[in-house]
Design a protein around this nucleic acid. Structure first.
Lengths: 96, 96
DNA sequence: TAAAGTAGTTTATTTTATAAACCAAACAAA
DNA sequence: TTTGTTTGGTTTATAAAATAAACTACTTTA
């Protein structure tokens, strides 16, 4: 009846991050923070979880002299998201 | 960009309950428990939250001599669910 | 060179979800 | 008839999560 919802994606901020990255090739920390309206601390924690799950890749470098963290989605991230959306449908019926 | 997801509905079990009740007029505790595969304790807690939010109506009565708790969705519950689904779309893009 | 800003991380606190323990009545059966 | 079991839950305790606050390190500006 109701499919299980991947708890890693069933989180407002992490879902927003993955949703954003899926349509964008790559995005840096500041941009993600702005788009999702997250606090830096919360974003840092959630990016870490997504990375540890293998759903995103996080690269730390510099833009000039300032640190710059760039994120991109992995193939596992894409398919986890697709699975999540499929599972969601079991809750939404024909409403979507 | 990303709409806020009503935290009361953004919970696997509460979403399942509301989703179930939306298509069914009314359902009792045991039935909901079976359909959602929830434990009784968890279900009890979550039904209480939904009721306190005014999203469902909970009626306690008896079937013969055994207690029987019947739940149904309220108009506020229906519209909260519809809002939630609308907000979700901002995360799912054209994936759904 | 002191103050303020940028880009984050770490730690602490609050909130949630979940599980475990419990309760009361009914039924079953010895 | 009293001991055990099942039903239908609720309450309380614990684990996990989200969030906020505090902090670090470096840079830019006044």
């Amino acid at each position: 009846m109701f499919k299980e919802l991947n708890p890693l994606l069933h989180s407002e901020l992490r879902l927003a991050v993955v949703s954003l990255l899926i349509s964008v090739e790559s995005a840096d920390f500041v941009y993600i923070k702005e788009q999702t309206k997250a606090t830096a601390g919360n974003l840092s924690v959630q990016l870490d979880k997504l990375q540890k799950a293998g759903y995103i890749k996080v690269e730390k470098g510099f833009k000039g002299k300032m640190p710059r963290t760039t994120c991109s989605i992995t193939p596992e991230g894409v398919s986890a998201f697709e699975e999540y959306v499929k599972a969601l449908r079991s809750y939404l019926g024909d409403k979507i």
